[in-house]
């Protein structure tokens, strides 16, 4: 089994923390992993992405081929569309619904939403508001990870929860619990009612 994931957003939104947690869970589960990151200039408020590949077998390329990604996990709705050519026709987009507008020519929001809604499998959520409701204003990325969790398949929700506990352990129990709460809210948001 293998899962190819594109993590994306705007520099500074915290996509690398999501990658770190998935990486921790994958390592503990004994999976093969490759994760290509963006460092340097583009981190300054520009578009950023990370190619994350998980597999039970050896992984060769650090990059995901076009139409190869099982999942796009995006901190920003327009950014989720930037990598559309990389999404498998059977793949899913899990994204924040709230635009991050730091450019003058940001597309019309209604048009952006209708383009997203026309795709076969998209999960959108105002992750910042949900994080706020959880009392964890900096936990939007954990809400997003929770939304993506049921689609990861190669890792269970419990494995991801345990990785969150490990990654945030040095910051204390309160931070661990706040992040788990945000994560759980994300999981709940995509579960069938």
């Amino acid at each position: 089994m293998k899962k190819d994931i594109i993590l994306c957003g705007v520099g500074g939104q915290g996509i690398l923390s999501i990658a770190t947690i998935i990486g921790e869970a994958a390592t503990k589960a004994g999976l093969h992993l490759k994760q290509a990151e963006v460092h340097g200039m583009s981190q300054r408020g520009g578009d950023v992405q990370s190619n994350l590949r998980l597999s039970t077998d050896q992984i060769w390329s650090d990059l995901i081929p076009q139409a190869g990604a099982d999942l796009i996990i995006s901190m920003e709705p327009m950014e989720s569309l930037r990598y559309l050519a990389y999404l498998s026709p059977k793949g899913t987009i899990v994204t924040s619904s709230k635009p991050f507008v730091n450019i003058p020519n940001y597309p019309d929001e209604a048009a952006l939403n209708s383009e997203l809604d026309a795709l076969p499998s998209v999960k959108k959520l105002d992750i910042e508001t949900v994080a706020h409701e959880c009392g964890n204003v900096r936990g939007a990325n954990m809400v997003l990870l929770g939304m993506a969790a049921p689609y990861l398949e190669i890792l269970s929700v419990d494995q991801l929860r345990s990785a969150i506990a490990t990654v945030f352990a040095r910051k204390g129990e309160d931070i661990v619990n706040a992040n788990l709460k945000a994560f759980d809210a994300g999981v709940a948001a995509v579960q069938p009612q």
């Binding site: 705007v10 520099g11 200039m41 583009s42 981190q43 300054r44 408020g45 520009g46 578009d47 327009m78 950014e79 569309l81 930037r82 730091n102 450019i103 020519n105 940001y106 597309p107 019309d108 048009a111 952006l112 383009e115």
Partner: peptide, 8 residues
């Protein structure tokens, strides 16, 4: 519905 987002 996609615009470039250069670093700033």
């Amino acid at each position: 519905n996609l615009a470039g987002r250069p670093p700033q």
